[in-house]
Each structure stands twice: as structure tokens, then as C-alpha cells.
């Protein structure tokens, strides 16, 4: 079937079998290989992209279901000349080792900071009404959908905290 996808600000036409997941459309049909495929079953978060600003697993969405939505991938968050704050901070804080999980981590963290700013609670929050601090426990819980096989977790958490502080956004590190 012929579908049109809004990706990183441009409209792309692509011909896909209805079975094509969003991750396969991005990687195999559109050459956007920044987004990674780990488990293909919603368990690892490597495929995390933003759809209408919200983080989702591109492996559990059909490409045809994403028509009429705005898809943002790691390629759309920044360029090598103009990195996003999280991209910069992942570099500064060594927020990765092999780097395979990193695009997913950064897309996920980008949306996660937005969820914090919107006042969404998490399982780690003492109170459902806040305040929600960017503590280690909160970030670990909110990022639990992104696994890192290299276990760079401590630096990932630090990078997210530092990026949030640099942005002057929500919360305080303890």
C-alpha cells in the first residue's frame, strides 16, 4: 500500500506491505538507520521514536498506523553541527559504550523530560501530586523501557540530569 509519513518535518511517500512496522519503514524503506531494532517485541526500547511528540516503540506500530502523525527520529532531534542538549550531554558524560541503545535512550529521554515538565507522576513518585524530582530513582523508573546491554546506566542518568539542568527545566538532583 502507498502511504505518506511526516518524518522529521518532511512528507515522505513510501510503498509498503501492510505488515511493515514503523521501525522497518524507517530503516529499510527510508534509510533512517539511526533508530535501532533490538528485540522487535517492545521489550528493549532501542526503537524508541517520537510520534506527535510522545515516545513510543516503533517495533509495535504499523507504518500505516502512523499516517497523519508527525514522526521524529534521532536524525530529527539534532544534526552533527547542532546537537540537541541531550545529545551533547550524552557525549560529555559518556552516556554510552557501544552506542546501540543510544538513539532510543535519547529519544526516550527527550519525551520523558517533557512528561516531567507536564507533571506526570511515575511508579517511583512518593505522591501522585508531586513534586516530581529528577532523582536517580525517578529517572531509573521513567527510563525503564530502555535497556542498555553495556549497562551504561549510571552515566545515562547523569547525562539526563545534566541536560535537564543545562536547560533549566524541571526538578533537582538529590
Amino acid at each position: 500500500m502507498q502511504i505518506s509519513l511526516h518524518i522529521n518535518g518532511s512528507l515522505r511517500d513510501v510503498y509498503v506491505d501492510p505488515r511493515t512496522t514503523l521501525i522497518d519503514a524507517l530503516r529499510d524503506h527510508l534509510g533512517l538507520t539511526g533508530t535501532k531494532k533490538g528485540c522487535d517485541h517492545g521489550q528493549c526500547g532501542a526503537c524508541t521514536v517520537l510520534v506527535d511528540g510522545r515516545r513510543i516503540n516503533a517495533c509495535l506500530t504499523l507504518a500505516c498506523m502512523a499516517q497523519d502523525s508527525e514522526v521524529t527520529t534521532i536524525e530529527g532531534l539534532g544534526t552533527s553541527d547542532a546537537l540537541s542538549p541531550l545529545q551533547t550531554q550524552f557525549l560529555n558524560d559518556d552516556g554510552f559504550q557501544c552506542g546501540f541503545c543510544t538513539p532510543g535512550q535519547i529519544c526516550s529521554a527527550t519525551a520523558m523530560l517533557g512528561e516531567m515538565a507536564a507533571g506526570w507522576p511515575s511508579h517511583a513518585s512518593d505522591s501522585l501530586s508531586g513534586p516530581f524530582l529528577l532523582s536517580h530513582a525517578e529517572i531509573a523508573e521513567r527510563m525503564s523501557g530502555n535497556l542498555c546491554r553495556c549497562a551504561a546506566y549510571s552515566n545515562i542518568i547523569e547525562a539526563i540530569q545534566n541536560a535537564a539542568h543545562a536547560e533549566g527545566s524541571s526538578g533537582d538532583a538529590p
Partner: peptide
């Protein structure tokens, strides 16, 4: 909030 992940809940 105790179920799945941030991505899946979205």
C-alpha cells in the same frame, strides 16, 4: 504506572 514502560503506556 506499575505496568509496562513509558513508551508502551503511551
Amino acid at each position: 504506572l506499575a505496568g509496562a514502560s513509558g513508551q508502551l503506556r503511551n
